[in-house]
């Protein structure tokens, strides 16, 4: 492994991504909207404007029934103790419903950079020259993975920190609890998301090295958003509760998935195969 080569490739790719507004602006906007604007808006308007409408018995009845049947006891008790339906909704939304939003941002942003990795070089006619250079395919691959991993995690972590500050400034006077600073969110941000992002990037880089065009890479990569949509639905319906243990297990499964993908990469670590499939 040649650190100099890996860092050179990663730096070049990151510089290219962040020198193009078309690439980094959407990445920042998605994180800004889903991880900062949405939770801040829900927190502020939910608490101050009584959005859910406590007067409406039609909504109150099924919501209370949902809370009473909630699988996690601590959360159930906390929700029951909150004074208004608006408070209950805000607390529940910020504690649980925000999880898929952060996962979604991590998935989308990692996909944007990683799906372009190899196929982008091919479309610019520069892959051939890289394969003619005295660098191993493994180092080229690792450089590409690093170039996607660093900005994706940096954006996710920055969004988490900013969101935590804004949301807690809005909600702390009402809930007297610091939201996000609990085991679920810590495991999510520092265990699940890094592993998920790495998984998504390795998979997308592999896809990018196999397909012929950027569009194909995006199509394949887009399939990975589906499990996140599944989590949103299951969270919203209370069908599936993301406890710390569940999150830890999701991370562990993804980690095994990463090892499997890395094995695939090693198998794929052949200049002849890459050259013959990509260069014509």
């Amino acid at each position: 492994m040649n650190k100099q080569t890996i860092l050179t490739i990663a730096r070049k790719d990151m510089k290219a991504a962040f020198s193009s507004k078309k690439v980094w602006v959407p990445m920042i906007i998605i994180a800004l909207i889903l991880c900062i604007v949405v939770p801040s808006g829900i927190a502020y308007f939910g608490i101050h404007f009584d959005l859910v409408g406590t007067s409406s018995k039609d909504i109150e009845k099924p919501l209370n029934s949902f809370i009473e049947n909630f699988p996690n006891e601590d959360m159930r008790n906390t929700l029951i103790a909150l004074p208004t339906l608006g408070y209950k909704f805000v607390y529940f939304f910020l504690s649980f419903m925000m999880i898929p939003f952060f996962l979604m941002v991590a998935i989308i942003n990692s996909m944007v950079t990683s799906s372009n990795s190899f196929v982008g070089e091919k479309e610019r006619n520069t892959l051939e020259t890289l394969l003619f250079a005295p660098i191993s395919i493994k180092n080229l691959f690792l450089g590409k993975v690093l170039a996607s991993l660093i900005p994706t995690l940096a954006i996710s972590f920055a969004a988490f920190i900013i969101s935590s500050i804004i949301v807690n400034v809005i909600t702390y006077p009402h809930f007297k609890v610091i939201l996000y600073f609990n085991s679920i969110w810590m495991i999510l941000m520092f265990w699940v998301i890094p592993i998920l992002v790495l998984f998504n990037i390795i998979l997308n880089v592999l896809i990018s090295a196999k397909v012929k065009t950027f569009q194909e890479a995006q199509q394949f990569g887009g399939i990975l958003v589906l499990p996140i949509v599944g989590i949103i639905i299951s969270q919203a319906s209370g069908m599936f509760f993301l406890s710390p243990l569940t999150l830890f297990l999701i991370g562990a499964v993804l980690l095994i998935g990463n090892l499997f993908l890395l094995k695939l990469v090693t198998k794929f670590n052949n200049r002849n195969t890459l050259f013959q499939s990509q260069i014509h």
């Binding site: 290219a16 610019r124 006619n125 520069t126 051939e128 020259t129």
Partner: peptide
């Protein structure tokens, strides 16, 4: 190579 293979950006 036939195409100059440089990064245009």
């Amino acid at each position: 190579t036939e195409s100059a293979s440089l990064y245009h950006d």
